[in-house]
C-alpha cells in the first residue's frame, strides 16, 4: 500500500537530552497508528517534529502527499493536547472551526469555505453547536470541535495528541470512534497519541510504543506481548488478551510501580 509518512532515523535532543533517539517507521495511507508510552516518553515531541514545528536534530521526515495536495500545512490536521480557552473571550463554534481554513488575506469566507466549515461540523456531529459559545460546551463537544477545526482543511494526515485526556471513558470512546469513522469515509491517515491501551488496541492498525530511548512498532498482538513489554518497560510485564481488547499489566503487581498503560 501507498506510504503516507516515513520517518527515518529521527533523533531529537532538547537541553542536552535525547528525547527521541533513532526512530524509524513508515505509515501507510489510511492507516491508524496509536502512539503510546509513559509520560515524558517523547510522544508530544514526536508530534511536533511531524508537524514541522520542531526540527529534528538528526534524521528525516517525509510526508507523502497525494498529488492533489498543494502544500504540507494544508494536508496535516492537528489537534493539540491542551487548549487555552478564556471563558470571557469565548466565541462561537462556527468561527472557531473556520480558523482551521487555509489562510488568505481575504477576511470573509467565500461560499466554498463556508461549505467546508459546515461539512466539518457535520462530520464531527457538531452542526447544532455552530452558534453556541465554546465556553458553554461540554468536554466531549469541545473535543469534537477541535477535531472539526483540524478537519476543515481536509487533511490527508490527522495528528491527534491525547484527544481524550480530559474525557470520561464513554466520551473518549466516542471521540475515537468518530475519528475512525472519518478515517474510513475519507481515507485519512491518523496518528493518535493516547494513554488508553484499550482504545489503542481496539481502533488502531498498529501501535508505536515509545519510551525513553526505546520504541517498538507493530500490530497490537505483536506489541502487547510479555517479552516486548518487558523489554520496553525494563520490568516484567504481561498482556492480558480479552475477547474485545488487550491490556498490559505488570506480571508481579507487588514489585512493580504504577505504570500508565
Amino acid at each position: 500500500m501507498e506510504s503516507a509518512l516515513s520517518v527515518e532515523h529521527v533523533s531529537v535532543s532538547l537541553g542536552g537530552e535525547w528525547i527521541l533517539h533513532d526512530i524509524s517507521f513508515e505509515v501507510r495511507r489510511g492507516e491508524m497508528v496509536s502512539i503510546i508510552g509513559p509520560n515524558g516518553a517523547g510522544k508530544s515531541t514526536l508530534m511536533k517534529v511531524l508537524l514541522g514545528v520542531l526540527q529534528p536534530s538528526r534524521g528525516r521526515i517525509t510526508v507523502h502527499l497525494p498529488p492533489a495536495a498543494k502544500n504540507r500545512s494544508r494536508s496535516i490536521g492537528y489537534v493539540p493536547q491542551s487548549r487555552q480557552m478564556d471563558v470571557d473571550t469565548s466565541l462561537r463554534a462556527w468561527d472557531f472551526v473556520s480558523f482551521g481554513l487555509p489562510h488568505t488575506l481575504r477576511p470573509w469566507l467565500n461560499r466554498k469555505e463556508r461549505s467546508r466549515v459546515r461539512e466539518a461540523l457535520e462530520l464531527t456531529r457538531c452542526e447544532e453547536l455552530a452558534n453556541q459559545a465554546i465556553s458553554r460546551l461540554s468536554g466531549g463537544q469541545r473535543q469534537r470541535l477541535y477535531l472539526a477545526q483540524a478537519l476543515v482543511r481536509n487533511p490527508d494526515l490527522l495528528l491527534l495528541d491525547e484527544p481524550t485526556s480530559n474525557l470520561d471513558p464513554g466520551g473518549q470512546e466516542m471521540v475515537v470512534e468518530l475519528v475512525n469513522q472519518i478515517r474510513q469515509e475519507r481515507g485519512t491517515t491518523v496518528l493518535l497519541v493516547t494513554h488508553d491501551m484499550h482504545i489503542a488496541a481496539k481502533y488502531s492498525d498498529r501501535i508505536l510504543y515509545l519510551t525513553r530511548g526505546r520504541y517498538a512498532i507493530g500490530r497490537v498482538e505483536d506489541i502487547v506481548r510479555p517479552d516486548v513489554l518487558t523489554t520496553l518497560y525494563g520490568a516484567p510485564m504481561t498482556g492480558i488478551h480479552e475477547e474485545t481488547h488487550t491490556t498490559a499489566v505488570p506480571s508481579r503487581t507487588s514489585s512493580m510501580p504504577y505504570l500508565e498503560v
Binding site: 514541522g52 514545528v53 492537528y78 491542551s82 487555552q84 473571550t89 472557531f96 477545526q149
Partner: peptide, 14 residues
C-alpha cells in the same frame, strides 16, 4: 483572529 482567540491552535497550525 486565529492567533488571538486560539493561540495554541494557531501555533499548531503553523
Amino acid at each position: 483572529t486565529f492567533d488571538s482567540f486560539d493561540p495554541v491552535g494557531a501555533e499548531s497550525a503553523g
